[in-house]
């Protein structure tokens, strides 16, 4: 359910940008969502359509780029790809992993007019 809050936050930033950058319609929104971020993409798409219904981003296309989860093992110091927080290092079996990428949720750019 917090995808509703995320969608509201996206719309707020779009509206802030509309004032400073002088545009009146948003056609496409590009997001970067990490695989380890606590976001359900389908839910976010649903709520984005709901909250933008009466806004300058009405019917805007949502393009979501996934970012792979990456971590460094604190024991064997190797970099590895992970898809969940509970995974162990495939090289040494340690759970002491430091996430270096994949928990981000960013608005990258907008196509506007």
């Amino acid at each position: 359910m917090h995808e509703l809050s995320l969608a509201e936050n996206i719309l707020q930033q779009i509206e802030d940008a509309a004032q400073t950058q002088q545009f009146h319609r948003v056609k496409t929104v590009w997001l970067e969502i990490g695989e380890l971020a606590c976001v359900e993409q389908e839910s976010l798409r649903f709520f984005f359509a709901v909250v933008t219904e009466d806004s300058i981003a009405r019917q805007a296309k949502l393009e979501i780029t996934g970012i792979a989860g990456q971590a460094v093992c604190n024991d064997c110091h190797r970099t590895l790809l992970i898809t969940a927080l509970y995974q162990a290092c495939p090289h040494c079996g340690s759970y002491a992993l430091q996430i270096t990428q994949g928990d981000e949720m960013r608005i990258r750019e907008l196509e506007v007019e």
Binding site: N9, M105, I107, E113
Partner: peptide, 15 residues
């Protein structure tokens, strides 16, 4: 009049 606008901000930047 279509153009691109860079945002490059965290979705939760406001929060």
């Amino acid at each position: 009049q279509t153009r691109m606008v860079k945002i490059e901000r965290d979705i939760l930047a406001k929060n």
